[in-house]
Design a protein around this nucleic acid. Sequence first.
RNA 1: GGUCCGUUCGUCUAGGGGUUAGGACGCAAGAUUUUCAUUCUUGUAACACGAGUUCGAUUCUCGUACGGACUACCA
Length: 508
Amino acid sequence: MNREVRVRFAPSPTGALHIGGVRTALYNYLFARKNGGKFILRIEDTDSQRFVAGAEAYIVEALAWCGIEVDEGVSVGGPHAPYRQSERRDIYLKYAQELIEKGYAYYAFDTSEELDAVRAEYENRGDTFSYNAKIRETLKTSLTMPADEVKRRLCEENHWVVRFKMPADEDITMNDIVRGEVTVNSSTLDDKVLYKAVDKLPTYHLANIVDDYLMDISHVIRGEEWLPSLPLHVMLYRAFGWSDKMPLFAHLPLLLKPSGKGKLSKRDGDKLGFPVFPLEWNAEDGTISHGYREDGYLPEAFVNMIALLGWNPGTDQEILSMSDLINLFSLDKVGKSGSRFDPEKAKWFNASYLKQTPSKELAVSFEKVLKERGIDAPFEKITSICEIVKDRATFINDFWDLSCYFFEAPKEYDQKVVAKFYKGDNIERVAAAAGVLEAIEDFSAENIKEVLHGWIVSHEYPMGQVMNTLRLAIVGTNAGADLAEIMSIIGKQETIDRIRAIERCIKI
RNA sequence: GGUCCGUUCGUCUAGGGGUUAGGACGCAAGAUUUUCAUUCUUGUAACACGAGUUCGAUUCUCGUACGGACUACCA
């Protein structure tokens, strides 16, 4: 019971990691940190066919961006290295053979084509084919062949596999931290392939159990899609005699598409109107999928949002930092049902984090955006602008659109606003305002506001009319920050220039 | 088809034998503001269905429906 907590995230490098995978990694990480344990990153690349170059580097980078630190694994090494299964291929065969010696597994010599034919035959009869206790006796296996024939084929052929000998009729009872007790009868299960001679690689099931055992994994936290394989995995632990070292299992509910059917998958790319990947992903076929990072999400907001999909702290608090998450995390607060991802709430999280990010930090990012546009502004000014803009933005990417009037005079005026305000007495009043502003010595927002308001009030002008017309001249429309603040930031001369410019540009 | 898992507002969820079923996003209205936002207030909206157990079920049990996963020499 005092076992050290050791959890692993074990993705397959078949492409980008989607948000469901990130969430699995995150829960593993939170659980490890919460319990003073280790978080291990293992790459399960036992399928040479589906291997995608760059996928592993993507996974490592994505975890780093999220702030998920790897204690042991492909990127950092560790006492159980290597952490890439393709580099561990030598260890698996002897475990497969051990199972055969103990009578828990056997060699099967059917070719894929033969199997396909048998499968088709069953289906034509309306039966479902399952490589199980009933029919393995009729197939080409070490169970049905003479020993010397088996030996000969093992030497001469390279398409044999090792299959697990699933008991014909046995109730297998398992315990899942999220779902409780689950019982399945072995008659509904088939003889899964554990090892393939063709590429001298184990399948997921064998590699997974052997590595978890060898790496002393204490808890397996993974997606619900693995629940159907749990009986096999439990049987494997028993067959190896490792029951006392068997990890505890927690199967996480799946992430569903926001609309329509099914679980979220990599193939959804960004057809759904929001990114499914943490980072931008350039697929081999040339398609580029959006990433949260590139779309302007703050990693803290992304992690916060992902964490709350299928788990909650049991309180009303929703804005949670990584350390909050670590402190509060517990597997028994993980829900049982799948969650639909809500892009709107994701935006809300980002906007919330943007508001609480210090303006100086935002200014560093925004300065780069401005430089790309050829705008060179003092850092102080950029910081002040960020302070104003962050309350109105959802993403850093929005900052330019929301603050361009600080950097350049309006190129055009919103026609609706012109029609509403740029008429009658307003035209003369605004022109007069330029003179009033000109006379202000201390061009601070407070001072501008005081003088301007005093002037409007003393002449009994309608406040809304004058101010909105002035805003039209300065901003080009009826939106944006406090007008006095804008004037103060752009400066007296620019303010006056813009007021004079509107007279020239708009002819009534 | 078979096996397994699940089902509280549109979405994420809290709760749990007797509650005005709570919060958040969204949406709507109002307040504040010279504008747009922010902020604040209010409103909107849910226990899938049918039996059973019980004095009483949204909560427990069983069915039904619906949803999901798995059913490869993929993970």
